[in-house]
Write a protein that binds this DNA or RNA. Structure first.
Lengths: 300, 300
DNA sequence: CATGTTTACGAGTGTCGTAAGAATA
DNA sequence: TATTCTTACGACACTCGTAAACATG
């Protein structure tokens, strides 16, 4: 459907070398090299910088890569639509999200959405937060659900909401009786934290530094569901955004307590899709569904 | 950049015959026929119905045509962006609009927009109202500015506003002293109308039929600016939407008088772009500019 | 010299144009 | 029979893979 030159180009951009792309594509490196030269000839500008250890995109190359990724997805979508005859209300939605959201939040969203569209399949990729937007940009997933991180990657943000951070504890915990907490309140109790690569941990660290509070950290885990269960057993206070733990709270298994003056604790939860991509109907529906849901959740 | 098969396919779709496309493309009909067969093989479904006088798209073919038109524009845009290096803030904006809007409204919009972007060029195509959306859909223009007509053509509507219809007359006209008019009021005076293929004429005819009023029509013209000048000389009452005549009113050359209970007189003015197309930055800017402008005009 | 890209060249594939065949009013 | 699409076939162009040449830390 699209010229091979673009496929080759894209794979070299991904892998960063002609030989690498050659192996993955089962195409001779010479052929790939020639096609890329042809593209550069056509656009009258180099698309890669030739470095000793491979090739990296020039700004012009970046533009072409963005276009090509979009073009392949578009072509794929229209082919599915034409072949499938049906307006693609069945299909697979590919999602990248972080570990903290994959548990309760994504499960709920998938469950509710499948009540509307029973034929939907979800492919959920749990990856490190900075990689979510990258995967969206490169078209490896249709939708990214992530807390915004510093690096601005050019993706389309369907919706962005400010999300608070709350302390999660056993219902009998002494602090469960309090309406609002400060970081200093927690200093006397054991706490459980996520790993430093999470956005959740980052806002907690920042807040502790600002208040000069040193927490009594008894557990650090990259598995947020594990932290929640640890908190449920009374082992420690954990942290989360309200949407990440909703069912546990409503079921009475845990209680959540907000912090006073919470703004420094806020993170931005984003629904991301590829910039300028025409989404398949199903994916578009789900992105709107998500946006509505978290739009409602913001009131929580 | 894109495979020839798609170019051939699209031209056959446009022209409606292989031989016709063969002439325009300077490619043998056999080659075109073969490429189209290949596409149909690839999608495992016919894209054209073979009629005795040529070929017409099947529903599957329509989908592919929509995709292909989009794909070619996208490819063109990205190529310009890569080559031009600059972020394409100079360039040409192609617009299709109706005769009534091309005069005052488009001139104003183009003039104001060029104050922001002096390097902009406009290609304005004045065509019959039903063709505006078609041209947008087929990618012959970037933006369509049209009053909505019955046939729903799948284009993206950037903005839609309800626009009233007013009577236009010389400042000394007896009716100029009235605040609101009815159709019956006009029966005693000569009026000038646009041709029946215009949306303006259609709403007037409908309203006259509803009220059972017979107008004293002294002029019918397909050139709305001519009708305005005729009204200005006192020859007749003409009709227009407020935005079509704004400068003439503000300059005091003509006066506009609204009708009582005007809703049946409303038309929907639409800013249209190709569905799901990623607009070049310049075009996107202009479409937003237009939307803002007519958004403001609605209060008029 | 190890790694990675580009050029040279023969083999294979695909596309094109001419011309003949088939379908339809 | 006039128009249009499709198939047959030889000529040409393009792409590929192997292998050698080139660039660089």
């Amino acid at each position: 459907m699209l010229p091979n030159a673009l496929r080759y180009f894209l794979e070299v951009a991904r892998i960063g070398s002609v030989n690498g792309a050659s192996e993955r594509l089962h195409v001779a490196g010479s052929a790939i090299s020639r096609q890329i030269s042809a593209l550069e000839m056509q656009f009258e500008t180099p698309l890669f910088e030739r470095k000793p250890r491979g090739m990296v995109l020039t700004p012009a190359g970046e533009k072409l890569a963005d276009y090509a990724r979009r073009a392949f997805l578009d072509a794929e979508d229209v082919a599915a639509e034409i072949r499938g005859r049906v307006d693609t209300l069945r299909g697979t939605i590919r999602i990248a999200t972080s570990e903290g959201l994959a548990n309760v939040f994504m499960s709920e969203m998938a469950y509710f959405f499948r009540e509307k569209y029973p034929e939907v399949r979800f492919d959920i990729h749990v990856v490190a937060p900075p990689n979510i937007a990258l995967m969206v940009r490169e078209g490896e997933v249709d939708i990214g659900i992530a807390f915004a991180v510093g690096t601005p990657i050019p993706v389309h943000v369907v919706r962005r909401v400010r999300v608070t951070t709350v302390a999660i504890m056993h219902p009998n915990h002494p602090l469960a009786a309090r309406d609002h907490l400060t970081m200093a309140d927690l200093a006397n109790y054991p706490v459980a934290l996520s790993t430093p690569d999470t956005t959740l941990r980052q806002v907690i660290d920042m807040r502790c530094a600002a208040e000069g509070v040193l927490l009594n950290v008894v557990m650090v885990s990259s598995h947020s569901a594990g932290l929640m269960h640890f908190a449920r057993q009374g082992g420690a206070i954990a942290f989360a955004s309200p949407i990440s733990v909703r069912t546990w709270i409503t079921d009475g298994l845990l209680v959540a307590r907000p912090f006073v003056e919470d703004t420094a604790f806020n993170r931005s939860l984003e629904i991301q899709t590829m910039a300028a991509r025409k989404l398949p109907r199903l994916v578009d529906d789900f992105s709107r569904f998500l946006a509505d849901e978290i739009g409602g959740q913001i009131a929580l």
